Simulated scan of single mutants.
Amino acid sequence: MAERAGGVRGAGPMRTVDVAGESGYSVQQVRDLERLGVIPPAARSANGYRSYTAFHVHALRAYRGLAAAAGPVEARRMLAGLRTGTLAGAAAAVGGVHVRLAREREEALRALAAVHAIRAEPGARGIDGDGDGAGAGDSDGDAMTITELAGALGVRTSALRFWEQEGLVLPERVTSLRARRYGPPAIAAARIVAALRSCGYGVPAVREVMGSLAGPGGLAEAERVLGLRLERITARTVALLHAGSDLAAVIAAAGDAAVGAS
């Protein structure tokens, strides 16, 4: 395949050590990634030595960006598809990663906005890590039943029970029949969980944010955790952008192969 993107020095057959130097991987990692199918098998010379091309370098660089953006397992699956699929399918697959990252960023921004709004409310002081015990002595008139809270949040009562089971929102049990009662701190926590879930956060990610509420920073710590999540999404996006020219080379190879087979 003719070289479609810049950055690979030299032309013709390349040794394993050359590919390692160009891709940023070690010699052993190049061999391991070849074994895993990240790159196609190298040609073998008469004496058994591996012989690579510039395409192998592009594929390895593309894998680095994809692995950072979508995870190594997904990156391996995608690269195999990019090499064997159609040009349109390959372009759509890469575009899909960009779309997922944009959606994750939007979800994190909405969740952060929800925490900002809840933090500004007086009723949030009990979970804001100020240590003043606000909410501990609230009157029963400030509490809500599980049915009332579910209605206020627009969720099912089964969702609140599930959140309790997962340790995300813990109600106060104050009646002789142990009916659930939620004071202002628990109500504020439930609102955060509802906001995170509506933004697409899974239970592990919600637990990470809610766990930060128990620390000294309270809601400020939750904001920090969400801010770190945004930074990670940005880093993954930048890694994918850096891999752009190498991904283009891999996708172009799929197009060349399709034309050659027709």
Rank of each mutant, 00 (worst) to 15 (best):
Leu153Val: 09
Gly154His: 06
Val155Phe: 11
Arg156Tyr: 12
Thr157Met: 12
Thr157Asn: 09
Leu160Trp: 07
Leu160Gln: 09
Arg161Val: 09
Phe162Asp: 12
Trp163Ala: 06
Glu164Lys: 14
Glu164Thr: 12
Gln165Asn: 12
Gln165Trp: 12
Val169Gln: 04
Pro171Val: 08
Glu172Phe: 04
Glu172Ile: 02
Arg173Gly: 02
Arg173Phe: 08
Thr175His: 14
Thr175Trp: 13
Arg178Leu: 09
Ala179Met: 13
Arg180His: 07
Arg181Trp: 10
Tyr182Pro: 05
Gly183Thr: 09
Pro184Tyr: 07
Ala186Leu: 05
Ala188Asn: 04
Ala188Thr: 13
Ala189Leu: 03
Ala189Asp: 06
Ala190Lys: 02
Arg191Gln: 14
Arg191Asn: 08
Ile192Pro: 01
Val193Arg: 01
Val193His: 01
Ala194Gly: 06
Ala194Gln: 04
Leu196Ile: 02
Arg197Ile: 00
Gly200Lys: 08
Gly200His: 11
Gly202Phe: 03
Gly202Cys: 05
Val203Asn: 05
Ala205Gly: 10
Ala205His: 02
Ala205Pro: 02
Arg207Trp: 10
Val209Ile: 14
Val209Cys: 13
Met210Arg: 11
Gly211Trp: 04
Leu213Met: 10
Ala214Glu: 14
Gly215Glu: 11
Gly218Tyr: 06
Gly218Asp: 03
Gly218Asn: 09
Ala220Trp: 04
Glu221His: 07
Glu221Gln: 13
Ala222Gly: 15
Glu223Pro: 00
Glu223Phe: 02
Arg224His: 15
Val225Ile: 15
Val225Trp: 01
Val225Gln: 02
Gly227Tyr: 12
Gly227Ala: 11
Arg229Tyr: 09
Arg229Pro: 00
